[in-house]
């Protein structure tokens, strides 16, 4: 975790946070490189929000250290704040202010010059598809618009580190695409992005992922390598009645995990070559003759379930 080249933008060591008797975060280590889009993935209650809040300097850790662009966040959170932008999970802007007024407010808090503010808000609102809504009260925007406005406000001052806590929850696909368009644009400016998400397709867009479970990081790597690290291989079982197939396959020899995916069942097995014919026979025996079984590349959701759901060590 040492970083002689100064490449690391966000560094956390031994981060611990308790709420009464509950340990929300138990000893987290993170090293996010400059320009990375780093994803925190995990189920509700895994500690994602608590970590984000500590990184943003609004919550004190019980133990551990955080360095953000070289600034000690635990010792001096106020010195880190001009460098970062934090977008909380709950919409944090003023609903009784208009889009333009919210932008003006955050721009002024970060001492953005008026000219820069005008140019940047024009540019960001255009990228977000929100130019016509400048005079609308934030409270009257749709969920997706609100999140995009949050991002615009967070980016009005060009932060070095952007912290986004489940930024696209409840956001429509079009807005989500706008959102990611803006994030990719930032990477080119060397902005480091840390985001938490519950969406697997979104996790797949990150350069690196930390899989979080019960306040601890279980795995941390690129999406591609996480997939390789998944034990076993994946078979897709496609039938007319996926639910019945799910029940039929459960408990069969060599099956490590099952994931019902709508029209199909993703079956994780120890050996694809050997188990595919076995499964076909088992399904036929239970009256499911039309089953189409093919090996597939795992998605991040399969990896997630395989690595966290079973609790098996990698």
């Amino acid at each position: 975790m040492t970083d002689p080249a100064g490449e690391v933008a966000v560094l956390a060591r031994g981060l611990v946070r308790r709420f009464g008797p509950v340990s929300a975060v138990r000893g987290i280590d993170l090293a996010v490189r400059r320009g990375e889009i780093f994803g925190l993935v995990g189920p509700d209650g895994a500690g994602k929000t608590t970590i984000m809040r500590m990184l943003a300097g609004v919550l004190r850790p019980d133990a551990g250290e955080i360095h953000l662009e070289g600034v000690d966040v635990v010792a001096d959170p106020e010195r880190a704040k001009p460098l970062l932008s934090y977008m909380p999970q709950r919409f944090g802007l003023y609903e009784d202010l208009t889009v333009a007024e919210n932008i003006f407010f955050y721009a002024t808090l970060f001492a953005v010059p008026a000219r820069v503010r005008r140019d940047r808000s024009q540019e960001l609102l255009a990228a977000a598809g929100m130019l016509p809504f400048r005079r609308r009260l934030a409270g009257q925007l749709s969920g997706g618009m609100k999140q995009k406005l949050g991002l615009v406000c967070a980016l009005i001052h060009t932060p070095r580190v952007l912290l986004l806590d489940e930024p696209t929850t409840g956001v429509d696909p079009v807005s989500r695409r706008d959102f990611w368009g803006i994030l990719y644009g930032l990477r080119e400016h060397g902005v480091t992005i840390l985001l938490s998400t519950a969406y697997m397709d979104e996790a797949e867009r990150c350069s690196r992922l930390a899989l979080l479970h019960a306040g601890a990081i279980r795995h941390c790597d690129t999406p591609a390598r996480l997939k390789q690290a998944m034990p076993g291989a994946l078979l897709a079982v496609v039938t007319r009645d996926a639910r019945r197939a799910h029940a039929a396959v459960e408990g069969a020899a060599g099956v490590l995990g099952l994931l019902l995916m709508g029209d199909r069942v993703n079956v994780r097995v120890d050996d694809a070559e050997r188990r595919a014919p076995e499964l076909r026979a088992r399904l036929a025996g239970q009256g499911i003759a039309d089953a189409d079984i093919t090996p597939i590349e795992p998605g991040i959701e399969d990896v997630f379930v395989a690595l966290l759901g079973s609790g098996s060590p990698a």
């Binding site: 943003a56 609004v58 106020e78 704040k81 909380p88 919409f91 944090g92 003023y94 609903e95 808090l109």
Partner: peptide, 14 residues
């Protein structure tokens, strides 16, 4: 109450 405090305190305002 309205949840605007969290973002406000993440800014450099004193």
């Amino acid at each position: 109450e309205r949840g605007t405090m969290e973002q406000l305190i993440s800014t450099p305002v004193t």
